[in-house]
Nucleic acid binder design. Sequence first.
DNA 1: AATCATATCTGTCCTAGACAAAGTTGGATA
DNA 2: TATCCAACTTTGTCTAGGACAGATATGATT
Lengths: 290, 290
Amino acid sequence: MIKIQQLSQEVGIGVDTLRIWERRYGFPNPERNSRGHRSYPEPQVEELRIVKKMQNLGLQPSKIFALSGAERRELLEQKQSSNLFENSALLRLVSELEPFEIDRELRHSLEAMGPQEFVYQLGLPLIHALDQGWTNGTISIAREHLVSDRLELLLKEQLRIALPQTDRNRLLCLTLSGERHKLGLLMSAVLFQCEGLECLFLNEELPLSEVPLLAGQLGVSGVALSFSAHYSGRQAKNNLATLRNSLDPNIKLIAGGHAVQQKITMPNLFICSELREISTLCRKHFSDHN
Amino acid sequence: MIKIQQLSQEVGIGVDTLRIWERRYGFPNPERNSRGHRSYPEPQVEELRIVKKMQNLGLQPSKIFALSGAERRELLEQKQSSNLFENSALLRLVSELEPFEIDRELRHSLEAMGPQEFVYQLGLPLIHALDQGWTNGTISIAREHLVSDRLELLLKEQLRIALPQTDRNRLLCLTLSGERHKLGLLMSAVLFQCEGLECLFLNEELPLSEVPLLAGQLGVSGVALSFSAHYSGRQAKNNLATLRNSLDPNIKLIAGGHAVQQKITMPNLFICSELREISTLCRKHFSDHN
DNA sequence: AATCATATCTGTCCTAGACAAAGTTGGATA
DNA sequence: TATCCAACTTTGTCTAGGACAGATATGATT
Protein backbone atom coordinates (compact mmCIF):
# COMPACT_ATOMS: atom_id res chain seq x y z
CA MET A 1 0.00 0.00 0.00
CA ILE A 2 1.85 3.07 -1.18
CA LYS A 3 1.11 6.74 -1.65
CA ILE A 4 0.88 8.57 -4.94
CA GLN A 5 4.31 10.20 -4.72
CA GLN A 6 6.01 6.92 -3.97
CA LEU A 7 4.14 5.27 -6.78
CA SER A 8 5.19 8.01 -9.14
CA GLN A 9 8.82 7.37 -8.31
CA GLU A 10 8.48 3.62 -8.51
CA VAL A 11 6.91 3.49 -11.93
CA GLY A 12 8.20 6.72 -13.41
CA ILE A 13 4.85 8.34 -14.12
CA GLY A 14 4.10 11.87 -12.96
CA VAL A 15 1.74 12.47 -10.07
CA ASP A 16 -0.56 14.60 -12.20
CA THR A 17 -0.63 11.97 -14.86
CA LEU A 18 -1.59 9.25 -12.41
CA ARG A 19 -4.51 11.32 -11.16
CA ILE A 20 -5.74 12.19 -14.59
CA TRP A 21 -5.53 8.62 -15.79
CA GLU A 22 -7.74 7.69 -12.90
CA ARG A 23 -10.19 10.43 -13.85
CA ARG A 24 -10.23 9.54 -17.52
CA TYR A 25 -9.72 5.81 -17.77
CA GLY A 26 -10.66 4.61 -14.31
CA PHE A 27 -7.22 3.13 -13.79
CA PRO A 28 -5.33 3.04 -11.52
CA ASN A 29 -8.14 2.65 -9.07
CA PRO A 30 -6.61 3.20 -5.65
CA GLU A 31 -8.20 2.74 -2.28
CA ARG A 32 -8.35 5.70 0.08
CA ASN A 33 -6.87 5.95 3.55
CA SER A 34 -8.52 7.70 6.49
CA ARG A 35 -7.45 11.07 5.12
CA GLY A 36 -8.98 10.43 1.74
CA HIS A 37 -5.54 10.01 0.20
CA ARG A 38 -4.97 7.53 -2.57
CA SER A 39 -3.42 4.27 -1.48
CA TYR A 40 -2.29 1.92 -4.20
CA PRO A 41 -2.22 -1.84 -3.71
CA GLU A 42 0.73 -3.77 -5.09
CA PRO A 43 -1.09 -5.40 -8.02
CA GLN A 44 -1.90 -1.99 -9.46
CA VAL A 45 1.72 -0.93 -9.15
CA GLU A 46 2.65 -4.02 -11.09
CA GLU A 47 0.02 -3.28 -13.72
CA LEU A 48 1.28 0.28 -14.11
CA ARG A 49 4.77 -1.02 -14.77
CA ILE A 50 3.32 -2.99 -17.64
CA VAL A 51 1.43 0.06 -18.87
CA LYS A 52 4.55 2.17 -18.71
CA LYS A 53 6.50 -0.39 -20.69
CA MET A 54 3.83 -0.45 -23.38
CA GLN A 55 3.82 3.32 -23.49
CA ASN A 56 7.56 3.31 -23.97
CA LEU A 57 7.01 1.00 -26.90
CA GLY A 58 4.98 3.77 -28.52
CA LEU A 59 1.38 2.88 -27.67
CA GLN A 60 -1.11 5.54 -26.61
CA PRO A 61 -2.74 5.40 -23.18
CA SER A 62 -6.24 5.26 -24.64
CA LYS A 63 -5.30 2.13 -26.57
CA ILE A 64 -3.50 0.58 -23.63
CA PHE A 65 -6.36 1.10 -21.22
CA ALA A 66 -8.84 -0.28 -23.72
CA LEU A 67 -7.20 -3.67 -23.25
CA SER A 68 -7.65 -6.10 -20.38
CA GLY A 69 -4.75 -7.02 -18.12
CA ALA A 70 -4.29 -10.35 -19.87
CA GLU A 71 -4.35 -8.75 -23.31
CA ARG A 72 -1.74 -6.24 -22.20
CA ARG A 73 0.60 -8.95 -21.04
CA GLU A 74 0.12 -10.89 -24.20
CA LEU A 75 0.82 -7.94 -26.43
CA LEU A 76 3.83 -6.90 -24.39
CA GLU A 77 5.38 -10.33 -24.41
CA GLN A 78 4.81 -10.52 -28.11
CA LYS A 79 6.61 -7.22 -28.55
CA GLN A 80 9.64 -7.96 -26.38
CA SER A 81 10.40 -11.64 -26.37
CA SER A 82 13.89 -12.79 -25.42
CA ASN A 83 14.43 -15.10 -22.51
CA LEU A 84 17.59 -14.05 -20.79
CA PHE A 85 17.56 -16.59 -18.05
CA GLU A 86 18.65 -19.36 -20.37
CA ASN A 87 22.16 -18.16 -19.70
CA SER A 88 22.97 -20.03 -16.51
CA ALA A 89 26.31 -18.34 -15.90
CA LEU A 90 24.58 -15.01 -15.96
CA LEU A 91 21.85 -16.29 -13.71
CA ARG A 92 24.40 -17.41 -11.13
CA LEU A 93 26.16 -14.09 -11.32
CA VAL A 94 22.96 -12.22 -10.79
CA SER A 95 21.53 -14.24 -7.96
CA GLU A 96 24.12 -16.36 -6.19
CA LEU A 97 27.70 -15.24 -6.10
CA GLU A 98 29.50 -13.37 -3.35
CA PRO A 99 30.49 -9.77 -4.05
CA PHE A 100 34.16 -10.49 -4.58
CA GLU A 101 33.30 -13.42 -6.81
CA ILE A 102 31.10 -11.17 -8.94
CA ASP A 103 34.04 -8.82 -9.23
CA ARG A 104 36.36 -11.64 -10.19
CA GLU A 105 34.00 -13.03 -12.83
CA LEU A 106 33.36 -9.65 -14.37
CA ARG A 107 37.02 -8.72 -14.49
CA HIS A 108 37.95 -12.04 -15.96
CA SER A 109 35.36 -11.68 -18.69
CA LEU A 110 36.43 -8.14 -19.47
CA GLU A 111 40.02 -9.28 -19.79
CA ALA A 112 39.05 -12.17 -22.03
CA MET A 113 36.58 -10.41 -24.31
CA GLY A 114 37.90 -6.89 -24.48
CA PRO A 115 35.72 -3.92 -23.58
CA GLN A 116 33.42 -3.91 -26.58
CA GLU A 117 32.43 -7.54 -26.50
CA PHE A 118 32.18 -7.34 -22.73
CA VAL A 119 29.57 -4.64 -23.05
CA TYR A 120 27.62 -6.40 -25.75
CA GLN A 121 27.77 -9.95 -24.45
CA LEU A 122 27.80 -9.46 -20.70
CA GLY A 123 26.99 -5.91 -19.69
CA LEU A 124 23.80 -5.42 -21.64
CA PRO A 125 22.31 -8.83 -20.87
CA LEU A 126 23.23 -8.34 -17.25
CA ILE A 127 21.38 -5.07 -16.93
CA HIS A 128 18.45 -6.52 -18.74
CA ALA A 129 18.42 -9.55 -16.46
CA LEU A 130 18.56 -7.36 -13.38
CA ASP A 131 15.70 -5.29 -14.72
CA GLN A 132 13.57 -8.28 -15.51
CA GLY A 133 14.42 -10.06 -12.30
CA TRP A 134 13.55 -7.01 -10.29
CA THR A 135 10.23 -6.53 -12.08
CA ASN A 136 9.08 -10.08 -11.66
CA GLY A 137 10.39 -10.43 -8.14
CA THR A 138 13.14 -12.98 -8.70
CA ILE A 139 15.86 -10.68 -7.44
CA SER A 140 15.85 -8.57 -4.32
CA ILE A 141 16.51 -4.87 -4.56
CA ALA A 142 19.58 -5.33 -2.41
CA ARG A 143 20.96 -7.95 -4.75
CA GLU A 144 20.27 -5.74 -7.75
CA HIS A 145 22.19 -2.87 -6.23
CA LEU A 146 25.01 -5.14 -5.20
CA VAL A 147 25.54 -6.49 -8.69
CA SER A 148 25.06 -3.27 -10.60
CA ASP A 149 27.43 -1.59 -8.19
CA ARG A 150 30.21 -4.02 -9.07
CA LEU A 151 29.62 -3.54 -12.77
CA GLU A 152 29.59 0.21 -12.38
CA LEU A 153 32.93 0.28 -10.65
CA LEU A 154 34.54 -1.99 -13.19
CA LEU A 155 33.33 0.12 -16.11
CA LYS A 156 34.52 3.29 -14.46
CA GLU A 157 37.96 1.87 -13.93
CA GLN A 158 37.98 0.82 -17.54
CA LEU A 159 37.15 4.39 -18.55
CA ARG A 160 40.00 5.75 -16.54
CA ILE A 161 42.67 3.68 -18.17
CA ALA A 162 43.18 5.69 -21.33
CA LEU A 163 45.46 8.67 -20.92
CA PRO A 164 44.47 12.04 -22.31
CA GLN A 165 45.91 13.11 -25.63
CA THR A 166 45.62 16.64 -26.82
CA ASP A 167 44.48 15.87 -30.34
CA ARG A 168 41.57 13.63 -29.45
CA ASN A 169 37.94 14.54 -29.40
CA ARG A 170 36.52 14.85 -25.94
CA LEU A 171 33.08 13.68 -24.96
CA LEU A 172 31.24 14.67 -21.80
CA CYS A 173 28.88 11.96 -20.57
CA LEU A 174 26.37 12.90 -17.93
CA THR A 175 23.00 12.31 -16.44
CA LEU A 176 20.69 15.15 -15.48
CA SER A 177 19.12 15.77 -12.11
CA GLY A 178 16.62 13.10 -11.29
CA GLU A 179 18.24 10.50 -13.49
CA ARG A 180 19.52 7.49 -11.67
CA HIS A 181 20.12 4.91 -14.30
CA LYS A 182 23.70 5.47 -15.23
CA LEU A 183 24.80 2.06 -16.33
CA GLY A 184 23.56 2.41 -19.87
CA LEU A 185 25.41 5.65 -20.36
CA LEU A 186 28.46 4.23 -18.67
CA MET A 187 28.59 1.39 -21.14
CA SER A 188 28.13 3.83 -23.99
CA ALA A 189 31.06 5.79 -22.66
CA VAL A 190 33.23 2.69 -22.75
CA LEU A 191 32.21 2.08 -26.34
CA PHE A 192 32.90 5.67 -27.30
CA GLN A 193 36.29 5.36 -25.77
CA CYS A 194 36.94 2.24 -27.81
CA GLU A 195 36.27 4.36 -30.88
CA GLY A 196 39.03 6.71 -29.88
CA LEU A 197 37.22 9.46 -28.02
CA GLU A 198 38.28 10.70 -24.63
CA CYS A 199 35.29 10.23 -22.39
CA LEU A 200 34.59 12.15 -19.26
CA PHE A 201 31.90 10.45 -17.28
CA LEU A 202 30.23 12.57 -14.63
CA ASN A 203 28.61 10.44 -12.02
CA GLU A 204 26.55 12.95 -10.17
CA GLU A 205 23.42 14.39 -11.54
CA LEU A 206 23.85 17.90 -12.85
CA PRO A 207 21.31 20.71 -13.22
CA LEU A 208 20.66 21.45 -16.87
CA SER A 209 21.91 25.00 -16.57
CA GLU A 210 25.37 23.88 -15.51
CA VAL A 211 26.05 21.82 -18.57
CA PRO A 212 27.05 24.54 -21.07
CA LEU A 213 29.48 26.05 -18.61
CA LEU A 214 31.19 22.77 -17.91
CA ALA A 215 31.28 21.79 -21.56
CA GLY A 216 32.97 25.06 -22.34
CA GLN A 217 35.55 24.71 -19.60
CA LEU A 218 36.46 21.23 -20.64
CA GLY A 219 36.54 22.03 -24.32
CA VAL A 220 34.52 19.00 -25.32
CA SER A 221 33.28 18.39 -28.83
CA GLY A 222 30.23 16.48 -27.72
CA VAL A 223 27.87 15.90 -24.82
CA ALA A 224 26.15 12.55 -24.30
CA LEU A 225 23.03 12.25 -22.19
CA SER A 226 20.87 9.40 -21.08
CA PHE A 227 17.13 9.61 -20.53
CA SER A 228 15.78 6.52 -18.88
CA ALA A 229 12.18 5.44 -18.82
CA HIS A 230 11.65 7.69 -15.84
CA TYR A 231 11.66 10.69 -18.13
CA SER A 232 8.62 11.20 -20.26
CA GLY A 233 9.38 11.71 -23.92
CA ARG A 234 8.13 15.25 -23.58
CA GLN A 235 10.46 16.12 -20.74
CA ALA A 236 13.39 14.61 -22.53
CA LYS A 237 12.62 16.68 -25.58
CA ASN A 238 12.24 19.87 -23.56
CA ASN A 239 15.50 19.28 -21.81
CA LEU A 240 17.30 18.61 -25.04
CA ALA A 241 15.86 21.73 -26.63
CA THR A 242 16.91 23.89 -23.71
CA LEU A 243 20.36 22.43 -23.85
CA ARG A 244 20.65 22.86 -27.59
CA ASN A 245 19.81 26.54 -27.20
CA SER A 246 22.24 27.25 -24.43
CA LEU A 247 25.11 25.20 -25.75
CA ASP A 248 27.67 26.09 -28.41
CA PRO A 249 26.07 24.95 -31.69
CA ASN A 250 29.29 23.22 -32.68
CA ILE A 251 29.11 20.88 -29.73
CA LYS A 252 27.35 17.70 -30.71
CA LEU A 253 24.53 16.34 -28.60
CA ILE A 254 24.05 12.62 -28.27
CA ALA A 255 20.95 11.34 -26.52
CA GLY A 256 20.03 7.83 -25.56
CA GLY A 257 17.71 5.89 -23.31
CA HIS A 258 14.13 4.69 -23.32
CA ALA A 259 12.62 8.15 -23.21
CA VAL A 260 14.01 9.32 -26.55
CA GLN A 261 12.28 7.88 -29.53
CA GLN A 262 13.77 8.74 -32.86
CA LYS A 263 11.31 11.53 -33.41
CA ILE A 264 13.29 14.41 -32.05
CA THR A 265 15.18 16.45 -34.61
CA MET A 266 17.55 19.27 -33.84
CA PRO A 267 20.73 20.64 -35.33
CA ASN A 268 23.75 18.61 -34.30
CA LEU A 269 21.68 16.21 -32.22
CA PHE A 270 22.02 12.48 -32.63
CA ILE A 271 19.65 9.98 -31.13
CA CYS A 272 21.18 6.71 -30.19
CA SER A 273 18.58 4.09 -29.39
CA GLU A 274 20.92 1.12 -29.65
CA LEU A 275 24.40 0.78 -28.23
CA ARG A 276 25.53 -0.88 -31.43
CA GLU A 277 24.91 2.35 -33.31
CA ILE A 278 27.74 4.04 -31.49
CA SER A 279 30.45 2.70 -33.71
CA THR A 280 28.79 3.99 -36.89
CA LEU A 281 27.95 7.28 -35.27
CA CYS A 282 31.56 7.87 -34.32
CA ARG A 283 32.88 7.11 -37.74
CA LYS A 284 30.40 9.50 -39.30
CA HIS A 285 30.63 12.40 -36.94
CA PHE A 286 33.78 12.11 -34.88
CA SER A 287 36.34 11.30 -37.50
CA ASP A 288 39.68 13.00 -36.83
CA HIS A 289 39.36 15.96 -39.17
CA ASN A 290 36.09 16.95 -37.50
CA MET B 1 13.13 31.69 -17.65
CA ILE B 2 12.09 28.21 -16.63
CA LYS B 3 8.90 26.40 -15.70
CA ILE B 4 8.03 25.07 -12.30
CA GLN B 5 8.79 21.46 -13.12
CA GLN B 6 12.20 22.29 -14.47
CA LEU B 7 12.93 24.47 -11.48
CA SER B 8 11.93 21.66 -9.19
CA GLN B 9 14.46 19.40 -10.86
CA GLU B 10 17.19 21.99 -10.88
CA VAL B 11 17.06 22.85 -7.21
CA GLY B 12 15.65 19.64 -5.78
CA ILE B 13 12.51 21.11 -4.23
CA GLY B 14 9.09 19.62 -4.90
CA VAL B 15 6.58 21.41 -7.13
CA ASP B 16 3.99 21.60 -4.39
CA THR B 17 6.54 22.99 -2.01
CA LEU B 18 7.56 25.72 -4.42
CA ARG B 19 3.96 26.82 -4.82
CA ILE B 20 3.24 26.82 -1.13
CA TRP B 21 6.39 28.78 -0.34
CA GLU B 22 5.19 31.40 -2.75
CA ARG B 23 1.82 31.45 -1.03
CA ARG B 24 3.24 31.63 2.48
CA TYR B 25 6.48 33.52 2.27
CA GLY B 26 6.15 35.42 -0.98
CA PHE B 27 9.22 33.73 -2.38
CA PRO B 28 9.95 32.58 -4.99
CA ASN B 29 8.08 35.29 -6.81
CA PRO B 30 7.84 34.15 -10.42
CA GLU B 31 6.52 36.04 -13.42
CA ARG B 32 3.67 34.57 -15.41
CA ASN B 33 3.63 33.69 -19.08
CA SER B 34 0.68 34.20 -21.43
CA ARG B 35 -0.98 31.09 -20.07
CA GLY B 36 -0.72 32.28 -16.49
CA HIS B 37 1.96 29.72 -15.77
CA ARG B 38 4.84 30.52 -13.44
CA SER B 39 8.08 31.51 -15.09
CA TYR B 40 11.15 31.79 -12.90
CA PRO B 41 14.04 34.14 -13.68
CA GLU B 42 17.58 32.87 -13.10
CA PRO B 43 18.35 34.96 -9.98
CA GLN B 44 15.51 33.29 -8.13
CA VAL B 45 16.80 29.88 -9.12
CA GLU B 46 20.14 30.83 -7.63
CA GLU B 47 18.52 32.12 -4.46
CA LEU B 48 16.58 28.90 -4.07
CA ARG B 49 19.79 26.92 -4.22
CA ILE B 50 21.02 28.93 -1.25
CA VAL B 51 17.75 28.36 0.55
CA LYS B 52 17.97 24.65 -0.09
CA LYS B 53 21.48 24.56 1.24
CA MET B 54 20.45 26.30 4.45
CA GLN B 55 17.56 23.94 4.84
CA ASN B 56 19.96 21.03 4.56
CA LEU B 57 21.92 22.56 7.39
CA GLY B 58 18.85 22.17 9.54
CA LEU B 59 17.20 25.61 9.36
CA GLN B 60 13.46 25.98 9.01
CA PRO B 61 11.97 27.78 6.01
CA SER B 62 10.26 30.37 8.18
CA LYS B 63 13.62 31.35 9.60
CA ILE B 64 15.31 31.30 6.24
CA PHE B 65 12.72 33.46 4.51
CA ALA B 66 12.74 35.96 7.36
CA LEU B 67 16.25 36.91 6.27
CA SER B 68 17.34 39.04 3.36
CA GLY B 69 19.44 37.61 0.58
CA ALA B 70 22.61 39.14 1.97
CA GLU B 71 21.86 37.88 5.46
CA ARG B 72 21.30 34.39 4.09
CA ARG B 73 24.67 34.33 2.44
CA GLU B 74 26.34 35.68 5.53
CA LEU B 75 24.75 33.14 7.83
CA LEU B 76 25.54 30.31 5.49
CA GLU B 77 29.16 31.25 5.26
CA GLN B 78 29.32 31.62 9.01
CA LYS B 79 27.89 28.13 9.52
CA GLN B 80 30.47 26.46 7.38
CA SER B 81 33.40 28.61 8.30
CA SER B 82 37.00 27.56 8.85
CA ASN B 83 39.15 29.03 6.25
CA LEU B 84 40.33 26.24 4.08
CA PHE B 85 41.53 28.34 1.24
CA GLU B 86 44.82 29.05 2.87
CA ASN B 87 45.91 25.75 1.40
CA SER B 88 46.83 26.82 -2.10
CA ALA B 89 47.45 23.31 -3.40
CA LEU B 90 43.95 22.37 -2.38
CA LEU B 91 42.59 25.53 -3.90
CA ARG B 92 44.16 24.74 -7.23
CA LEU B 93 42.86 21.21 -7.10
CA VAL B 94 39.39 22.40 -6.41
CA SER B 95 39.13 25.18 -8.90
CA GLU B 96 41.69 24.95 -11.65
CA LEU B 97 42.99 21.56 -12.68
CA GLU B 98 41.83 19.39 -15.54
CA PRO B 99 40.02 16.18 -14.65
CA PHE B 100 42.95 13.91 -15.37
CA GLU B 101 45.24 16.20 -13.41
CA ILE B 102 42.94 16.02 -10.43
CA ASP B 103 43.10 12.27 -10.71
CA ARG B 104 46.86 12.33 -10.90
CA GLU B 105 47.24 14.61 -7.91
CA LEU B 106 44.86 12.62 -5.77
CA ARG B 107 46.49 9.32 -6.65
CA HIS B 108 49.89 10.69 -6.00
CA SER B 109 48.87 11.97 -2.59
CA LEU B 110 47.22 8.69 -1.70
CA GLU B 111 50.36 6.83 -2.64
CA ALA B 112 52.55 9.18 -0.63
CA MET B 113 50.45 9.49 2.50
CA GLY B 114 48.77 6.15 2.75
CA PRO B 115 44.99 5.83 2.95
CA GLN B 116 44.49 7.06 6.48
CA GLU B 117 46.46 10.26 6.22
CA PHE B 118 45.00 10.80 2.78
CA VAL B 119 41.53 10.83 4.25
CA TYR B 120 42.45 13.08 7.15
CA GLN B 121 44.70 15.53 5.38
CA LEU B 122 43.21 15.68 1.93
CA GLY B 123 39.80 14.00 1.71
CA LEU B 124 38.08 15.77 4.56
CA PRO B 125 39.43 19.26 3.82
CA LEU B 126 38.57 18.74 0.18
CA ILE B 127 34.93 18.01 0.84
CA HIS B 128 34.75 20.96 3.14
CA ALA B 129 36.41 23.24 0.61
CA LEU B 130 33.96 22.16 -2.09
CA ASP B 131 31.07 22.95 0.17
CA GLN B 132 32.42 26.34 1.08
CA GLY B 133 33.48 27.23 -2.40
CA TRP B 134 30.01 26.57 -3.68
CA THR B 135 28.44 28.84 -1.09
CA ASN B 136 30.60 31.86 -1.78
CA GLY B 137 30.37 31.39 -5.49
CA THR B 138 33.98 30.43 -6.08
CA ILE B 139 33.10 27.03 -7.45
CA SER B 140 30.37 26.02 -9.85
CA ILE B 141 28.13 23.09 -9.12
CA ALA B 142 29.59 21.35 -12.12
CA ARG B 143 33.09 21.78 -10.80
CA GLU B 144 32.04 20.54 -7.42
CA HIS B 145 30.61 17.39 -8.93
CA LEU B 146 33.63 16.91 -11.13
CA VAL B 147 36.06 16.95 -8.26
CA SER B 148 34.02 14.91 -5.81
CA ASP B 149 33.48 12.39 -8.56
CA ARG B 150 37.21 11.86 -8.95
CA LEU B 151 37.62 11.45 -5.21
CA GLU B 152 34.76 9.00 -5.06
CA LEU B 153 36.21 6.78 -7.73
CA LEU B 154 39.61 6.78 -6.15
CA LEU B 155 38.23 5.82 -2.75
CA LYS B 156 36.17 3.05 -4.26
CA GLU B 157 39.15 1.61 -6.02
CA GLN B 158 41.06 1.80 -2.78
CA LEU B 159 38.32 -0.18 -1.09
CA ARG B 160 38.53 -2.89 -3.70
CA ILE B 161 42.19 -3.54 -3.34
CA ALA B 162 42.12 -5.69 -0.24
CA LEU B 163 41.30 -9.30 -0.99
CA PRO B 164 38.74 -11.11 1.10
CA GLN B 165 39.98 -13.37 3.86
CA THR B 166 37.67 -15.77 5.53
CA ASP B 167 38.65 -14.94 9.08
CA ARG B 168 38.13 -11.22 8.87
CA ASN B 169 35.20 -9.24 10.11
CA ARG B 170 32.98 -7.93 7.41
CA LEU B 171 31.29 -4.56 7.47
CA LEU B 172 28.40 -3.50 5.27
CA CYS B 173 28.41 0.23 4.54
CA LEU B 174 25.35 1.83 3.06
CA THR B 175 23.82 5.21 2.49
CA LEU B 176 20.14 5.64 2.96
CA SER B 177 20.13 8.92 1.12
CA GLY B 178 22.09 11.92 0.08
CA GLU B 179 25.08 12.93 -1.91
CA ARG B 180 27.84 14.49 0.13
CA HIS B 181 27.42 11.98 2.89
CA LYS B 182 28.14 9.20 0.51
CA LEU B 183 31.66 10.54 0.47
CA GLY B 184 31.74 10.71 4.23
CA LEU B 185 30.73 7.11 4.55
CA LEU B 186 33.09 6.12 1.79
CA MET B 187 35.99 7.65 3.65
CA SER B 188 34.86 5.90 6.80
CA ALA B 189 34.86 2.65 4.90
CA VAL B 190 38.44 3.21 3.83
CA LEU B 191 39.40 3.86 7.44
CA PHE B 192 37.58 0.77 8.62
CA GLN B 193 39.44 -1.22 6.04
CA CYS B 194 42.72 0.18 7.31
CA GLU B 195 41.79 -1.25 10.68
CA GLY B 196 41.56 -4.69 9.18
CA LEU B 197 37.88 -5.02 8.36
CA GLU B 198 36.54 -6.11 5.01
CA CYS B 199 34.25 -3.36 3.85
CA LEU B 200 31.40 -3.72 1.43
CA PHE B 201 30.22 -0.37 0.21
CA LEU B 202 26.76 -0.17 -1.36
CA ASN B 203 26.31 2.85 -3.49
CA GLU B 204 22.59 3.40 -3.64
CA GLU B 205 19.72 3.83 -1.33
CA LEU B 206 18.23 0.67 0.08
CA PRO B 207 14.84 0.31 1.67
CA LEU B 208 15.36 -0.35 5.33
CA SER B 209 13.60 -3.68 5.08
CA GLU B 210 16.20 -5.03 2.68
CA VAL B 211 19.10 -4.50 5.02
CA PRO B 212 18.68 -7.46 7.39
CA LEU B 213 18.29 -9.85 4.48
CA LEU B 214 21.41 -8.62 2.79
CA ALA B 215 23.39 -8.55 6.02
CA GLY B 216 22.43 -12.13 6.64
CA GLN B 217 23.34 -13.27 3.15
CA LEU B 218 26.72 -11.63 3.34
CA GLY B 219 27.46 -12.76 6.88
CA VAL B 220 28.63 -9.37 8.04
CA SER B 221 29.46 -8.59 11.64
CA GLY B 222 28.52 -4.95 11.37
CA VAL B 223 26.45 -2.44 9.40
CA ALA B 224 27.53 1.17 9.01
CA LEU B 225 25.01 3.85 8.05
CA SER B 226 25.15 7.52 7.30
CA PHE B 227 22.29 9.91 8.02
CA SER B 228 22.40 13.17 6.14
CA ALA B 229 21.11 16.42 7.55
CA HIS B 230 17.70 16.25 5.96
CA TYR B 231 16.98 13.19 8.03
CA SER B 232 15.56 14.56 11.21
CA GLY B 233 17.09 13.24 14.40
CA ARG B 234 13.82 11.52 15.13
CA GLN B 235 13.69 9.79 11.78
CA ALA B 236 17.24 8.64 12.13
CA LYS B 237 16.45 7.28 15.55
CA ASN B 238 13.35 5.51 14.28
CA ASN B 239 15.24 3.98 11.41
CA LEU B 240 17.98 2.79 13.67
CA ALA B 241 15.48 1.32 16.10
CA THR B 242 13.66 -0.51 13.32
CA LEU B 243 16.91 -1.84 12.05
CA ARG B 244 18.08 -2.88 15.49
CA ASN B 245 14.88 -4.86 15.97
CA SER B 246 14.95 -6.62 12.64
CA LEU B 247 18.64 -7.34 12.59
CA ASP B 248 20.55 -10.10 14.32
CA PRO B 249 21.46 -8.63 17.74
CA ASN B 250 25.05 -9.76 17.31
CA ILE B 251 25.49 -7.55 14.27
CA LYS B 252 26.90 -4.22 15.32
CA LEU B 253 25.35 -0.98 14.10
CA ILE B 254 27.49 2.03 13.41
CA ALA B 255 25.81 5.35 12.64
CA GLY B 256 27.28 8.63 11.50
CA GLY B 257 26.29 11.88 9.84
CA HIS B 258 24.74 15.18 10.81
CA ALA B 259 21.41 13.74 11.88
CA VAL B 260 22.73 11.52 14.65
CA GLN B 261 23.65 13.40 17.74
CA GLN B 262 25.05 11.32 20.54
CA LYS B 263 21.66 10.99 22.21
CA ILE B 264 20.69 7.63 20.82
CA THR B 265 21.44 4.58 22.92
CA MET B 266 20.76 1.04 21.84
CA PRO B 267 22.36 -2.36 22.36
CA ASN B 268 25.28 -2.86 20.04
CA LEU B 269 24.90 0.57 18.43
CA PHE B 270 27.82 2.93 18.13
CA ILE B 271 27.52 6.55 17.13
CA CYS B 272 30.44 7.96 15.24
CA SER B 273 30.36 11.72 14.92
CA GLU B 274 34.02 12.10 13.99
CA LEU B 275 36.00 10.08 11.50
CA ARG B 276 38.93 9.99 13.90
CA GLU B 277 36.89 7.91 16.32
CA ILE B 278 36.91 4.99 13.95
CA SER B 279 40.28 3.71 14.94
CA THR B 280 39.39 3.54 18.65
CA LEU B 281 36.02 2.06 17.87
CA CYS B 282 37.57 -0.75 15.89
CA ARG B 283 40.09 -1.63 18.54
CA LYS B 284 37.39 -1.77 21.16
CA HIS B 285 34.71 -3.64 19.30
CA PHE B 286 36.20 -5.37 16.30
CA SER B 287 39.29 -6.96 17.80
CA ASP B 288 39.99 -10.40 16.37
CA HIS B 289 38.48 -12.54 19.09
CA ASN B 290 35.17 -10.75 18.66
C1' DA C 1 0.06 8.64 -52.39
C1' DA C 2 0.92 12.84 -50.27
C1' DT C 3 -0.79 17.23 -48.14
C1' DC C 4 -3.40 19.81 -45.27
C1' DA C 5 -7.26 21.03 -42.02
C1' DT C 6 -9.94 19.55 -38.27
C1' DA C 7 -10.92 16.81 -34.19
C1' DT C 8 -9.40 14.18 -30.33
C1' DC C 9 -6.13 12.88 -27.01
C1' DT C 10 -2.63 13.77 -23.49
C1' DG C 11 0.14 15.73 -19.95
C1' DT C 12 1.19 19.71 -17.34
C1' DC C 13 -0.20 23.58 -15.14
C1' DC C 14 -3.67 26.28 -12.35
C1' DT C 15 -6.32 27.64 -7.58
C1' DA C 16 -7.43 27.07 -2.97
C1' DG C 17 -8.24 24.27 0.93
C1' DA C 18 -7.20 20.37 4.35
C1' DC C 19 -4.42 18.00 7.68
C1' DA C 20 -0.79 14.78 9.73
C1' DA C 21 3.85 14.67 10.84
C1' DA C 22 7.76 17.17 12.49
C1' DG C 23 9.57 20.93 15.11
C1' DT C 24 9.32 24.30 18.98
C1' DT C 25 8.22 25.99 23.33
C1' DG C 26 7.56 26.15 28.09
C1' DG C 27 6.17 24.36 32.37
C1' DA C 28 6.24 20.28 35.54
C1' DT C 29 8.79 16.65 37.40
C1' DA C 30 12.94 13.95 38.75
C1' DT D 1 20.09 21.38 36.37
C1' DA D 2 18.48 17.98 33.19
C1' DT D 3 14.56 15.31 31.21
C1' DC D 4 9.98 14.67 29.81
C1' DC D 5 5.47 15.69 28.15
C1' DA D 6 1.69 18.46 26.38
C1' DA D 7 0.17 22.32 23.67
C1' DC D 8 1.13 25.09 19.85
C1' DT D 9 3.24 26.29 15.21
C1' DT D 10 5.25 25.14 11.05
C1' DT D 11 5.74 22.46 6.96
C1' DG D 12 5.05 19.49 3.06
C1' DT D 13 2.06 16.54 0.71
C1' DC D 14 -2.24 15.57 -0.58
C1' DT D 15 -7.19 16.70 -2.33
C1' DA D 16 -10.61 18.33 -6.30
C1' DG D 17 -11.86 19.86 -10.68
C1' DG D 18 -10.82 23.03 -14.41
C1' DA D 19 -8.02 24.93 -18.42
C1' DC D 20 -5.35 24.54 -22.47
C1' DA D 21 -1.21 23.91 -25.75
C1' DG D 22 1.02 20.66 -28.31
C1' DA D 23 0.98 15.99 -30.16
C1' DT D 24 -1.48 12.52 -32.63
C1' DA D 25 -5.18 10.62 -35.35
C1' DT D 26 -8.69 11.17 -38.83
C1' DG D 27 -10.61 12.36 -43.04
C1' DA D 28 -11.06 15.21 -47.16
C1' DT D 29 -8.80 17.01 -51.24
C1' DT D 30 -5.40 17.34 -54.55
